[in-house]
């Protein structure tokens, strides 16, 4: 499914995304791999409609997207319940709202934490609340920016499993930014490599390529220096 075509984006005079066309696997997890500072977050923001591209087209509407940021971004003065409620329509009845919040907390294995404040949660719990908030919007597209990067290995693999199950159940298309090859291989249905402001390559994990070879290929792709920018004459 085509979500971006020929997108270019620059901060002032520093072009971060040169020419991005992104054709993702629908209802699957699409991992976006790339080096630090390579423009992964920028690409995600453009997709979510938080930044407007200089050129090219975004084919999805911002209302269909939900974003999970690298940090949980819970508002520290609101309880878990109130943070989650912000993702629901403003005019929802109180009872319906409470039911939706309780259900989603159950799904992310945080049942009963409605009244807690973000300060009282561990990093992993807070990130799960962030995920729950995104899911509450019932998005068609779930955009995640290195959501588990700050977590320890065990919590991370737990959350990866949880995400896989949730996505299978909710039928959303997920764009998952990461710089961790193992993570991409563990959860990705398709893997895109972002390099030099372009999508350098796409791998589908269903392909016959054996995992060890794929890992080698990805590592090469990431380490290889980007091609020098072509200066138009």
């Amino acid at each position: 499914m085509l979500i971006l075509s020929r997108v270019r984006f620059a901060f002032a005079h520093h072009t971060v995304l040169h020419d991005i066309t992104l054709d993702v696997r629908e209802d699957g997890i699409n991992c976006l791999l790339g080096a630090s500072g390579g423009g992964k977050s920028t690409l995600l923001r453009v997709t979510a409609g938080l930044l407007v591209p200089d050129e090219g087209t975004v084919h999805i509407t911002p209302e269909d997207c939900a974003v999970v940021f690298q940090d949980p971004r819970l508002l520290p003065w609101l309880t878990v319940e109130e943070n989650l409620a912000l993702a629901l329509p403003a005019r929802l009845e109180r009872r319906q709202r409470d039911r939706a919040v309780a259900a989603i907390l159950e799904e992310v294995q945080l049942a009963g934490l409605q009244k807690h404040l973000p300060d009282e949660l561990s990093g992993g719990m807070a990130q799960r609340v962030g995920l729950a908030r995104a899911l509450l919007r019932r998005p068609r597209f779930l955009l995640m920016d290195e959501p588990f990067a700050a977590l320890d290995a065990i919590t991370r693999s737990e959350l990866q499993q949880m995400l896989l199950e949730l996505i299978r159940r909710q039928r959303v298309t997920c764009l998952f930014v990461t710089h961790d090859i193992n993570e991409a291989l563990a959860i990705g249905d398709a893997i895109f490599v972002l390099r030099g402001g372009c999508v350098a390559e796409r791998f589908d994990t269903g392909d016959s390529l054996d995992p060890r070879r794929l890992r080698e290929r990805l590592r090469e792709q990431l380490l290889e220096p980007p091609e020098p920018e072509k200066v138009p004459s």
């Binding site: 209302e63 997207c65 971004r73 508002l75 003065w77 609101l78 109130e82 912000l86 993702a87 908030r133």
Partner: peptide
């Protein structure tokens, strides 16, 4: 900026933005 971006990504209306983000901050 992060909180403002969050408010945008949740498509908060100005009423909820004032009540839950701006005034508490």
């Amino acid at each position: 900026a992060a909180q403002r971006e969050l408010a945008n990504s949740l498509h908060l209306g100005w009423r909820r933005y004032y009540r839950y983000v701006l005034l508490p901050a």
